[in-house]
Computed example of a mutant assay.
Amino acid sequence: MDVKTIRESAREKMKGFCRLCNTCDGRACAGEVPGMGGAGTGAAFMENLRALASVKLHMRTLHDAKNPDLTVELFGQTLQAPIMGAPITGASYNGGGAISELEMVTAIVQGSAEAGLIGWGGDGADPTMYHSGLEAIQKTGKGLTCIKPRSQAAIIERIEEAEKAGVTAISVDVDGAGLVTMALKGQPVGPKTKEELAELVKATKLPFIVKGIMTVDEAIMAAEAGAQAIVVSNHGGRILDHTPGAATVLPEIAHELQGKIKIFADGGVRNGTDVLKYLALGADAVLVGRPIMQAAFGGGTEAVKTVMEKYKAELHQAMIVTGCRTIKDITPEILY
């Protein structure tokens, strides 16, 4: 299965919902929320890609980094690269429903695992979304779960379900507080205080991740609340119009917290070189979202694996021509 075939299949199955643009930058689908687009003008969606595109790299070829080692250790898992399948829900109302929620999340979690990586399950207005993710993780044997910022009791209930399913780590995507789709379905979500975060961290012995951090002060709050990791993310630009891109705010967050907690990043990742850029800006690992959702529609588990293998190969090549022997060698020094 090749990427061209996957894209053609996905374009047919997602017809009327996703255009599978040659450059997936949010221009064609701006304002389509629910749907595949960014909020309002789509500026925040587009800014994720623009911010990454503005990052330039030093090309170096006089060195001995001939066969880079991409492996990393993360929450007790050895990954073949610091790349993860992002938590995605909404196969029906965002993607058109050609595949079920369970089929989509299984493709993401299982396909990521088969590529030697790890995938996330997500949460949404329909309870089957969250439980589909847990089912996929349980079958695969590893995976992270992400819970919407519901009431404390509702989150703790889902944490307990996740622990029984054997998830690797638990996350709450606090940026989901502004999701239109949750509001439309009558699901109460909202911001969390530092004290509420601390309560959630204490509710599990598993690693706890706060997803949706875009400022230094909130990154510090998450760390002080006991979180083991954060995800620098503007929720793909689907929550608030006119935010900066994740690549713009990541360096100052990493400067403050790198080495103290794990820092992940997502938003606008379209190839392995984008992964390299996020790592050089301070991320410990990178989440890939939209491309693997499209892959799940285009060919299920095998397609997600194919796309993830492509990202790994592109990262490997980018490390060679920037002189990076290992992931630890990917530092701001490779940036122009």
Rank of each mutant, 00 (worst) to 15 (best):
A115P: 06
V105R: 04
A225T: 06
T5H: 11
S132P: 02
G90Y: 09
G26D: 14
I137C: 13
Y93T: 07
G95V: 05
R19F: 14
R19V: 15
N22W: 11
L20D: 15
H235W: 09
I320Q: 06
V307C: 04
A28R: 06
I261E: 03
C24H: 06
A203H: 04
A265R: 01
A125R: 09
E47D: 12
G298C: 08
A44C: 04
Q80I: 00
K185F: 04
L200Q: 05
K194I: 05
P149S: 05
V232N: 04
I263M: 02
I159D: 02
V167Q: 04
L206A: 14
G237N: 07
G26M: 14
M104V: 08
P149Y: 02
G122T: 09
K202A: 14
P82E: 03
L279N: 03
G267K: 00
G323S: 01
T89D: 10
I263D: 00
I230Q: 01
E333T: 06
G37A: 12
G298V: 11
G76R: 14
V109Y: 04
A296I: 06
T106F: 09
V174K: 01
E302G: 05
Y311V: 04
I137G: 12
I88T: 12
C324L: 13
I99N: 04
F45D: 07
T5I: 09
L62G: 06
A43Q: 05
G143M: 09
I230V: 04
T248S: 13
K310P: 00
N271F: 02
V286D: 01
A295G: 10
I137R: 14
D217Q: 09
I99D: 08
L144P: 01
E256P: 05
L335C: 03
H255P: 00
G166E: 08
T5N: 12
A313Q: 15
V231K: 00
C324F: 12
S151D: 15
S151F: 08
T243H: 07
G237M: 07
A247K: 02
K194G: 10
Y336H: 11
S132R: 03
T306L: 04
E157F: 08
G116C: 04
G166K: 11
I156E: 15
G272D: 02
P188G: 02
D69K: 05
C24K: 05
A227G: 10
E12T: 08
I6N: 10
K305S: 02
A254E: 08
I327G: 05
Y336G: 07
H63A: 01
T5V: 11
D217M: 02
T61F: 15
G298S: 09
E32F: 10
A223L: 08
L250H: 10
E196V: 01
K15G: 09
Y93W: 11
E333C: 01
I209G: 01
V167E: 01
R270S: 15
I220D: 06
I213M: 04
V55I: 15
G85E: 08
D241P: 05
S92K: 15
G35I: 03
V275W: 03
G289N: 14
A81W: 06
G26C: 15
G143D: 09
E199P: 02
G85P: 05
A113R: 11
A222N: 07
P332V: 03
A198T: 12
G272P: 00
T301R: 12
I334P: 00
N234S: 10
Q110H: 14
L206E: 12
M214C: 11
R238W: 05
G186C: 06
E160F: 00
